[in-house]
Each structure stands twice: as structure tokens, then as C-alpha cells.
Design a protein around this nucleic acid. Structure first.
Length: 82
DNA sequence: CGTATGACGTGCA
DNA sequence: GTGCACGCCATAC
């Protein structure tokens, strides 16, 4: 299980309506300092089972999304995360 | 093995 | 409050 797999698993565990920061996800994956790699991994990974839109930045910004940030914001708004 | 890349974070001007 | 520069880790080539 590589760090990548762990990150994906952690993100998949995030419940609807909840949001986690890259730092939190990295910490849950086992490396609080690897938040940089977390974003990189999610970017390369287009897994539908991984709701990457629930992962936001520490300062509250939505960050980015493989299908467009606007889409991500819309989903969060719809789920009540916003 | 070494280099390049990236959905980030923090500090300072 | 905004903008710029540096540092950080894992993955891919």
C-alpha cells in the first residue's frame, strides 16, 4: 500500500457534507508533511470512488478539481459543506 | 538513480 | 488584505 493508495482510501472515507484539508488527509495517510504529494496524487488520479472535491485547502479555499473548480464548489454547496 | 512536476503551506514585504 | 518567494513530500519519466 503506497502513500498514494492510503490517500485515496482516506479521501474515500470522507462522509458527504464534510470537508478535509490536504494537511488532514496527509496526516491520516501517515505523513502530515506530504500534503504536497496528496494534491499531486489526487490530480493524477481520476478515481470516481474518491470524492476529491471534499478535500479543501487549509485556508478554506476549495483548491482545484480535475473537472473544474466551479463544479467542485457546486457539489460542496449541494452537499451542505459550504 | 536523478530530475522535473504539482489540486499546498507558511512567512515576509 | 494582497502578492511574492521559499520549502516540502511523493509520483512519474
Amino acid at each position: 500500500m503506497s502513500f498514494k493508495e492510503r490517500v485515496l482510501a482516506v479521501v474515500a472515507r470522507i462522509p458527504a457534507g464534510a470537508t478535509m484539508t490536504y494537511k488532514e488527509v496527509a496526516a491520516a495517510a501517515g505523513n502530515p508533511r506530504a500534503y504536497r504529494a496528496v494534491g499531486n496524487i489526487l490530480n493524477k488520479n481520476y478515481n470516481p470512488d474518491v470524492p476529491c472535491h471534499r478535500v479543501v485547502r487549509t485556508d478554506g479555499a476549495t483548491g482545484g478539481y480535475n473537472r473544474g473548480r466551479a463544479r467542485k464548489i457546486g457539489i460542496l454547496k449541494k452537499e451542505g459543506a459550504i
